[in-house]
Deep mutational scan, measured.
Amino acid sequence: HAATELTPEQAAALKPYDRIVITGRFNAIGDAVSAVSRRADEEGAASFYVVDTSEFGNSGNWRVVADVYKA
C-alpha cells in the first residue's frame, strides 16, 4: 500500500519520525508527490507531508522535502 499524503492540519497533529529529500525532474507537482509517496513507502512510512518544493536553477530539476510519519 502506498503512503498517503496528509493535509496541513493532519501533519500538524502528528510528529514526523524522519524527513526525506528527493531531487529529480518532475513535469508537475503531482509527479513529485508520487515520487515522495514511493520513497516514503519504501521507508515503511504510513503517510507523508510535503514541507517544501524548490526548483534548482532553470534546469527543470526539483528538490522536494517531506516529513514522513509511521501511523
Score class of each variant (00 low, 15 high):
residue 52 D to P: 00
residue 7 T to M: 05
residue 37 S to A: 15
residue 50 V to L: 11
residue 59 S to D: 14
residue 45 A to Q: 02
residue 42 E to P: 00
residue 2 A to W: 11
residue 46 A to N: 13
residue 29 I to S: 06
residue 40 A to K: 02
residue 32 A to E: 01
residue 28 A to Q: 11
residue 22 I to N: 00
residue 40 A to T: 04
residue 21 V to G: 01
residue 40 A to C: 13
residue 19 R to W: 07
residue 40 A to N: 04
residue 68 V to E: 02
residue 47 S to M: 13
residue 36 V to I: 12
residue 32 A to L: 12
residue 38 R to M: 10
residue 48 F to A: 00
residue 44 G to D: 04
residue 63 R to A: 07
residue 68 V to R: 00
residue 16 P to R: 04
residue 36 V to R: 00
residue 37 S to G: 15
residue 12 A to D: 06
residue 53 T to S: 12
residue 6 L to H: 03
residue 29 I to T: 04
residue 64 V to G: 00
residue 12 A to P: 02
residue 65 V to F: 05
residue 22 I to V: 11
residue 23 T to D: 05
residue 55 E to I: 12
residue 43 E to S: 11
residue 17 Y to C: 07
residue 9 E to P: 07
residue 55 E to Y: 14
residue 7 T to R: 07
residue 66 A to T: 01
residue 19 R to G: 00
residue 57 G to T: 06
residue 56 F to A: 07
residue 63 R to E: 08
residue 28 A to F: 09
residue 46 A to W: 13
residue 20 I to F: 05
residue 53 T to F: 15
residue 9 E to I: 08
residue 2 A to S: 13
residue 21 V to C: 12
residue 53 T to Q: 08
residue 14 L to Q: 12
residue 44 G to Y: 04
residue 19 R to D: 00
residue 10 Q to E: 11
residue 55 E to C: 08
residue 56 F to R: 04
residue 42 E to M: 11
residue 19 R to N: 00
residue 58 N to P: 13
residue 59 S to R: 07
residue 49 Y to W: 07
residue 10 Q to H: 04
residue 58 N to I: 12
residue 8 P to M: 14
residue 21 V to P: 00
residue 28 A to K: 12
residue 57 G to N: 09
residue 7 T to P: 06
residue 58 N to K: 10
residue 60 G to P: 04
residue 16 P to I: 03
residue 66 A to N: 01
residue 55 E to N: 11
residue 29 I to Y: 14
residue 61 N to M: 15
residue 51 V to R: 04
residue 26 F to P: 01
residue 24 G to N: 01
residue 8 P to R: 14
residue 22 I to A: 01
residue 2 A to H: 14
residue 1 H to S: 11
residue 18 D to W: 08
residue 34 S to G: 11
residue 68 V to L: 15
residue 20 I to S: 01
residue 38 R to L: 12
residue 56 F to M: 12
residue 13 A to V: 14
residue 59 S to C: 09
residue 65 V to Y: 05
residue 70 K to L: 09
residue 51 V to K: 02
residue 43 E to G: 08
residue 67 D to T: 05
residue 46 A to M: 10
residue 42 E to F: 09
residue 53 T to R: 09
residue 1 H to R: 09
residue 64 V to Q: 00
residue 12 A to N: 12
residue 6 L to A: 02
residue 38 R to S: 09
residue 32 A to W: 10
residue 71 A to H: 11
residue 64 V to K: 03
residue 61 N to Q: 13
residue 23 T to N: 07
residue 61 N to A: 11
residue 26 F to I: 02
residue 17 Y to R: 01
residue 18 D to L: 14
residue 25 R to C: 10
residue 64 V to Y: 02
